[in-house]
């Protein structure tokens, strides 16, 4: 039985459609990423799967149970970390963990092995108030709290938003550890570059899933030629490329311009165009971000 099965889920809030016909499945012990910008519907989808919302249409089963009828079972067996860290800022690190252990009728000692690696990194601060922790430490504490009852499935809603790069990197390696324990992880993020850390991803935009695949699979579907152009003056070159008839898309990407020419122009024509405009360029491989935009 797959831990998460969503079938044709739609969700409307008054007249706005937050989710439209979402279907997907998550395998056991998989890190499944929902990747998309704010407003794509990631949080709404999470809340439907973890029983906080009822879909307008469609059904979902989590851990083999129906999300509407068997919500109590699901609530006992999943861990959830909402978008904002769900900690009590006036309680200490240890008190927060203890509280969540108590409401799940367990204790820190009982499940220490699961959280040990994560909790060890903040244990030195166990008497500090959660409100005085840095973003990265809050994130580790929130994850420990979500894991304290040994859930079979973990929902992490934008766990890396507002967290610095170092903590983000550490966080992803923790998730890979948890996967070894057989825990299925559903994680959402607005950062395209984090897609690579997932086993499979669903790219979401305006309530739709545009594609579901392994990160490499998504990139391999990009069926255009992509060039990185390195001009002297990025803005001028961008205007030039945008107005050129050869161009399919041209966008700033870091210190370069990611340029996709139309399919019906040959290599020679492209070379000629670049030379005549005095532009340095090289063939580049697309990243998830480029693929995401091509699908939009």
């Amino acid at each position: 039985m797959k831990p998460v099965i969503a079938e044709n889920i739609s969700k409307h809030f008054k007249s706005t459609a937050a989710l439209q016909h979402i279907s997907f499945e998550v395998d056991k012990a998989e890190i499944f990423g929902l990747i998309g910008p704010d407003g794509a519907g990631k949080t709404t989808l999470f809340r439907i799967l973890n029983t906080l919302l009822i879909p307008t249409e469609g059904t979902a089963s989590v851990l083999g149970q129906d999300t509407i009828r068997d919500y109590k079972y699901i609530r006992h067996h999943v861990g959830y970390m909402p978008g904002r860290f769900s900690l009590y800022e006036d309680l200490s690190v240890e008190e927060n963990l203890n509280f969540y252990a108590t409401i799940f009728q367990t204790s820190i000692e009982e499940n220490y092995s699961l959280i040990e690696k994560i909790y060890k990194q903040i244990e030195a601060f166990k008497d500090r108030k959660a409100g005085n922790l840095s973003g990265g430490m809050k994130q580790k504490l929130a994850l420990s709290c979500a894991l304290i009852h040994k859930p079979k499935l973990l929902f992490l809603d934008e766990p890396t938003t507002g967290v610095d790069a170092v903590s983000r990197k550490e966080f992803w390696s923790m998730l890979k550890d948890l996967k070894q324990h057989g825990i299925t992880i559903l994680v959402s993020t607005p950062y395209m570059d984090e897609a690579e850390q997932c086993d499979r991803v669903a790219l979401m935009q305006s309530g739709h899933i545009m594609d579901i695949d392994k990160p490499a699979g998504i990139v391999s579907k990009f069926n255009h030629r992509l060039f990185a152009v390195y001009p002297e003056n990025i803005y001028e070159a961008l205007q030039l490329l945008k107005t050129s008839p050869i161009t399919h898309t041209a966008q700033i990407f870091g210190q370069s311009i990611h340029w996709v020419p139309k399919e019906n122009f040959s290599e020679a024509e492209i070379l000629n165009f670049m030379h005549s405009n005095n532009l340095n360029y090289k063939v580049d491989s697309p990243n998830i971000e480029d693929c995401f935009m091509e699908m939009m």
Binding site: G36, P37, D38, Y235, I252, E289, F292, M296
Partner: peptide, 15 residues
């Protein structure tokens, strides 16, 4: 938190 297309357009404005 914005989608990549919007972000790249935004940087275009900055440039």
């Amino acid at each position: 938190g914005v989608d990549p297309k919007t972000r790249r357009q935004f940087w275009e404005l900055i440039y």
